[in-house]
Amino acid sequence: MISRSRQRAFVPMVAPAFAFLLTFVLGPALYAVWISLQETAGYGEARFVGLRNYVRLVGDPIFHQALLNTLKLLVIAGGATFLIGFALTMVLREMRGRLIARNVLFFPNIVSALVPAIVAGFLFNPDGLVNTILRGVFGVEDPPKWLSVDNTFALIMIVAIWAAVGYYTTIIMAAVDRIPRYFYEDCALMGANAWQRMRHVTIPLSWDVFSVCALLWTISSIKVFELVLVFGGGTAGMPPNKTWTVALYSYAATYGGSGSPPELGMTAASALFSLLIAALIVLLLRRALDREAIQF
């Protein structure tokens, strides 16, 4: 009786959500594959070009740069975020006021990435606050050109780490908090030091959450967009190629507006290409991080 009523309710319960998923996520993703095989400006006629857009991507130095930047975000900023998050967890868990501290560290996460990007322009421009302090207080004659094209992406990564660290700390902290106290009491009895406790209890028992973190970071790093779009205060057009991420490349192919006609096929192809690379990385990560879950 219970099951029959549930069977009948299943379709009407799931259908609306599934319809939205199909209409706005899965359907569009499939349609993007079709667009990626065409040469079209969105108006006029579209020409089927097969894989030519993908071939162009493989040979496009700007796309290489964008991909490299995204991979930097993924590996360097991701690694740093994770290590800092883990270190913060270790410090915070035995600290008074831990929740307040954690919540303050979390707040950049709920702020639009546009905000630190614009504020960075104010702080780091040649006559900005940072250089004023460096000149005035520390007597630095020739402060660094923070926002020169070569330095911008490093700053972008630092802001990305700052914004994400609280989020990952929260996740890691929840995992570490689930580890029963008696494991640590055992450690104390056996005279294990801090490093051994971490190596033999904390890390193995929160391992599954580490792989979740890696997955989440991979997904979010290919989405990094508005932080780069306006970093340094916003330029009227697109920011310099050297700072582009794959999301920016995809956006610019259609909406770059530098006089060249929109190339919808390139937008779709580059977005799918980077999604494919992210999917490969996810698979590799899962392989590398896959260990049998420890029950406790």
Partner: peptide, 21 residues
């Protein structure tokens, strides 16, 4: 699984199809 897969689709992939639709 389909819903979970959807979390991995970045906006830039579905941007144009949604706009055109």
């Amino acid at each position: 699984l389909l819903f979970a897969l959807g979390t991995g689709v970045p906006t830039q992939v579905i941007l144009l199809p949604i706009f055109l639709m």
